[in-house]
Amino acid sequence: MTSTDSTPQYFDGPVWAAIISASAGCAAFGLLVDLAEASKSFSNALNFYNPTGDLSGKSTVAVVIWLFVWIVLHACWKHRDMKGSGKLTVIAVILILLALLAVFPPFFGLFAAG
């Protein structure tokens, strides 16, 4: 994108920061689901609120990871126009597909602690 004195310049870095961080947050949530299924002690560690069980920890930690990644990526990319947005698209789609797979019960059931 080019800019002139009269035209404000819009960077796409912040847009990609929002997209990649949301995808990473979803993937982190999926990973936490699978790890909690695989390890009883990890599941217990995520039990932040007993009536809800480990879902409280999985969701809280995933939201914290998502927001942290968003803040970091936004700070790094806020004045950047991202080159190779095709690669970022592929990364975002893969992370979201991994998240969808990771929260599918027949998949995370494969990791069930004995």
Partner: peptide, 21 residues
């Protein structure tokens, strides 16, 4: 229920990113 309780959490994260953009 196992699927519902987990997949639901992906929706607000993705929706927030879209709304912010």
């Amino acid at each position: 229920m196992e699927w519902k309780e987990h997949i639901a959490w992906l929706a607000p994260i993705l929706a927030t990113a879209v709304a912010a953009i």
